[in-house]
């Protein structure tokens, strides 16, 4: 067991972790933040994407102990004062989710892409979301939503 302190959605947590505990399990099972989901186990699908230091990261490919001292944002921490983040709002307005299982990871990947200034065109958004798989939407409305959010944010 190893002592780890990490900040998740602005709250500091001190935990005793087994080194093999993946960050996604720490979030889901230690902290009860079950918004982050697991889709593939091979770093392919991006469902488990969270922000680490503001950048998108696949939390199934990072150990909880590696997050010691870092700031993490999950889908639960994205809205502020009850207001959806612009990307969440755009997903709602453009019907960019169906079953919703990939949505938290997709939203956070999009937030990171927009923050980095890379959501500049449809093709840039499509390329920028290459690490996130959705089986329901065919991505059409996701791309529309991210475009709209990027236009609103910039």
């Amino acid at each position: 067991m190893r002592h780890v302190a990490l900040t998740v959605n602005g709250s500091r947590h001190e935990l005793e972790l087994e080194p093999r505990e993946l960050l996604v399990y720490v979030l889901r099972e230690r902290l009860g933040l079950t918004g982050t989901t697991i889709g593939c186990d091979t770093s392919s699908c991006g469902a488990c994407t969270v922000l680490v230091g503001g950048e998108s990261v696949k939390s199934c490919t990072m150990l909880g102990v590696q997050a010691d001292g870092l700031e993490i944002t999950t889908i639960e921490g994205l809205a502020s004062n009850g207001q959806l983040h612009a990307v969440q709002q755009a997903f709602h307005e453009h019907h960019a989710l169906q079953c919703g299982y990939c949505t938290p990871g997709m939203v956070l990947a999009a937030v990171s892409l927009i923050e980095e200034g890379k959501a500049t065109s449809e093709s840039a958004i499509r390329e920028g979301l290459e690490g996130n798989l959705c089986r329901c939407t065919g991505y059409h409305n996701i791309v529309r939503a991210v475009s709209a959010a990027a236009a609103g944010v910039s």
């Binding site: 770093s43 991006g46 680490v52 696949k58 490919t61 990171s112 920028g128 290459e130 690490g131």
Partner: peptide
Amino acid sequence: VGDPQVRHR
């Protein structure tokens, strides 16, 4: 290499 998340880590 990989995708944005991979390139971030």
